[in-house]
Amino acid sequence: MVEVVETVWGRGGELVLRRDGDAYEVIENGVFLMDTRNGESERLLVTGALDRPGARLLIGGLGVGFSLRAALDAGAASVVVVEREPAVIAWNRSGPLRTVHGDALADPRVRVVEADLVSWLWDTEERFDALCLDIDNGPEWTVTDGNAALYSDAGLVRLRSLLTPGGVLAVWSAGAAPAFASRLREHFGAVREVPVEVPRGEPDVLWFARS
C-alpha cells in the first residue's frame, strides 16, 4: 500500500514524498524521479569518477543521498551538493530519507547549496576533481526545460572549465542518449559509457568523460 508522506509545492512544481512498503519515492508533477530501492547506478556515478585520493567533488542533485554516501565512503576530501528543492534537502537532513544514507549531510566534509544547478555552475569560480550530475532522467529527458543547457555544446564547455586537469565529468541517465554521447566525445578526450542493469525497464546509462 502506497502512503503519501508529504506533498509540497517546490521550485519545479508539486513534489510528493511517498512510502511503498520499505521504499520511499519522490514524484515531481506526477513524474517519477527517484526511489530508495536500489541505487546501484547512483553510487557508481560517484565511485566511477573518483580515481584519486582526497578528491574535491561536486554532486548535482541530492536525490535520496545514495551518491553522497558513496562519495564519503570512497574517501572524498570534500563534497559540494547542489540541490534546488528545499523539501528534498529537508527530507534528507531531518526527515525519513536521513536513514537511507546514514545522516550523510551531517558529515563535516559536506556542504549543501540550495540553488538551481545550471545557474550555480555558470556563476561559480570553484574547481572540482569530479562533477557528478544527476538532476534529470537523462540528457534528453530533463525535469525542467532550463536543464537542457547543461547538455548542450556550451554547457559541456562550461563543465569542462570547472574541472581540474585530469578531472572527470560523470552524467547519469535513465536510458541511452546517442546524440548527447556523440556531443560529449567532441568536447572530452576520453569518454566511457557504462550501462547499468535495473530490475525493470531499460538499463540506466552513465558517462565518464575526462578533461
Rank of each mutant, 00 (worst) to 15 (best):
P96I: 11
D73A: 14
P86H: 10
V81W: 12
E114K: 01
V64T: 13
R69F: 05
A130G: 10
A130R: 06
H101F: 04
V79M: 08
A77E: 14
S152K: 02
E114M: 09
E125R: 15
V118G: 00
L162E: 04
V64E: 11
W91M: 07
S67M: 03
A76R: 08
I135M: 02
G146R: 15
D123P: 00
A115N: 09
E83G: 09
L62G: 08
W172D: 06
I89Y: 02
L62K: 08
R93E: 15
S161G: 14
R93F: 08
D107P: 00
L117T: 02
G61V: 14
T142W: 10
A71L: 08
A77P: 03
L72M: 05
D134I: 06
I59N: 03
E126N: 04
A90V: 09
V168C: 03
T164H: 15
E125V: 08
V79S: 14
A148C: 09
V88S: 10
G61P: 06
A74W: 03
L97P: 02
R98P: 00
W91I: 09
S161R: 13
N147I: 00
D116R: 00
R69E: 15
W141Y: 13
T99D: 14
N137K: 06
D73Y: 04
W122G: 14
A130L: 03
Y151S: 06
T99R: 12
S78R: 14
A90C: 06
E114L: 04
S67G: 05
F66D: 07
L68N: 04
A104F: 01
A115C: 04
A148H: 07
V80S: 12
S94A: 15
W120E: 13
R84L: 14
R98D: 08
